[in-house]
């Protein structure tokens, strides 16, 4: 049985442009077969016993297999004029959807996994940053995160200290805001939308809203796919595949404050699909 807390959340299930182009996507959500299809000009999601509610936002199709507990989150920055919106496409990963999100919240791996791009030795230190659970929106936020990056974005020419904010607005979603190398004072927005197929298998949809008028779209997509595929070989080799929520199974440090908050937030809200509750 899947907990109602899990069923009542919104999940990404397709790229809207592909469904609008007439593609039909047969996939899974929380272990149930679903179909995403265009019917009479509207996108519909059909579950095993009927259709699910649909929201089209951030270029993707979102659905809720239960009764939506709240509206799907918003990212006001996405609507700013001048941003390029980039659908990066789907990548399947054999891991818990929660591990995929947690990895996205992590910066300490940059020098070892995204070497010479998002990080490089000897610049490995993670400075103290702030983490909070915002009560009004019930979201996990990390702010004042800074890290030295050799090539922070496709548009970045030289190494810079990048500032980040991380946000978890839904159990299988994270959005980050990072220093924009092109427009000072603005944030580039990068999201990771994770569709939980099962507790140990997910389809991941990276997404970007950037200020960058120069770089061709194919290069923007390639850059983000490169970054995410560097993570994939990590995600498929973490043991256990489920995310342990009980302390003791894995040892965090101060650099992992966001991940600690995310795990607590999941546990407190009963969002345990893809989690391991008892140390094996």
């Amino acid at each position: 049985m899947i907990a109602p807390e899990v069923l009542n959340e919104w999940y990404p299930v397709a790229m809207a442009s592909q469904i609008r182009a007439g593609q039909r996507r047969q996939t899974q959500l929380l272990g149930q077969p679903i179909t995403v299809v265009l019917t009479d000009g509207a996108i519909a999601v059909q579950g095993p016993t009927g259709s699910f509610p649909v929201i089209e936002r951030f270029g993707h199709v979102w659905t809720c297999p239960g009764t939506p507990a709240h509206d799907l989150f918003t990212v006001p920055e996405v609507d700013q004029p001048g941003r390029r919106l980039v659908d990066v496409g789907v990548v399947r990963v054999k891991c818990s959807p929660l591990r995929a999100v947690e990895n996205f919240l992590d910066i300490a791996h940059f020098p070892f996994v995204h070497t010479d791009i998002l990080g490089a030795e000897p610049h490995t230190e993670v400075n103290r940053y702030e983490v909070q659970i915002r009560e009004d929106t019930d979201e996990v936020w990390a702010t004042k995160v800074t890290f030295y990056q050799p090539q922070a974005a496709k548009s970045a020419e030289v190494g810079i200290v990048t500032e980040y904010m991380y946000r978890v607005p839904a159990p299988t979603v994270s959005v980050l805001y990072k220093t924009c190398p092109v427009v000072p004072g603005e944030w580039d927005v990068i999201g990771i939308f994770v569709q939980p197929l099962t507790e140990e298998l997910c389809d991941v949809w990276p997404y970007m809203a950037l200020f960058d008028d120069v770089t061709p779209m194919a290069e923007l997509i390639a850059f983000q796919q490169m970054i995410f595929l560097q993570d994939r070989s990590i995600l498929e080799n973490q043991i256990p595949r489920l995310l342990p929520l009980d302390p003791g199974m894995e040892i965090p440090t101060q650099a992992d404050l966001t991940s600690i908050a995310y795990r607590r937030w999941l546990k407190k809200r009963g969002l345990t699909y893809g989690a391991q509750m008892v140390a094996a």
């Binding site: 973490q238 043991i239 894995e250 440090t253």
Partner: peptide, 12 residues
């Protein structure tokens, strides 16, 4: 074959 930190295979 797992790092005590985040469970990654040490053989990698």
């Amino acid at each position: 074959d797992r790092c005590p930190h985040r469970g990654m295979r040490l053989s990698h």
